[in-house]
Amino acid sequence: MDDLRHIPGTPVFQGEQAKRGYALNKMCFSFNDAANRAAFLGDEEGYMDRYRLNEEQRAAIRSRNVGQLIAAGGNVYYLAKFAGIFGLNVQDIGAQQTGMTIEAFKAFLASQGT
């Protein structure tokens, strides 16, 4: 079997993360539906209650911080639906995780294409 742990800068979503992040990811999966996105925005704490998020996950959701959400068991594909509520795309979340400005992150992407 592959050992997928400890790849620098690279979280890999394995059974451990799936187990820990189930409630968080299930909530984010619900954001495929516009009515659920509106319900979340209407009452964030109540919506997190419905999905039984733990304290770490609640704090990560409140922080809007992708690194914190991944640490709480979030999977990037479901988290993207949470980020979408706020109009954030993959460059925004890339900039956030790498600590770059959006402009610097886009320049970094472009630099690898040449």
Binding site: G9, T10, G67, I70, V76, V90, Q97, Q112
Partner: peptide, 8 residues
């Protein structure tokens, strides 16, 4: 997309 290596 994820982690501090995002954008690789």
């Amino acid at each position: 997309l994820d982690g501090t290596r995002a954008g690789f």
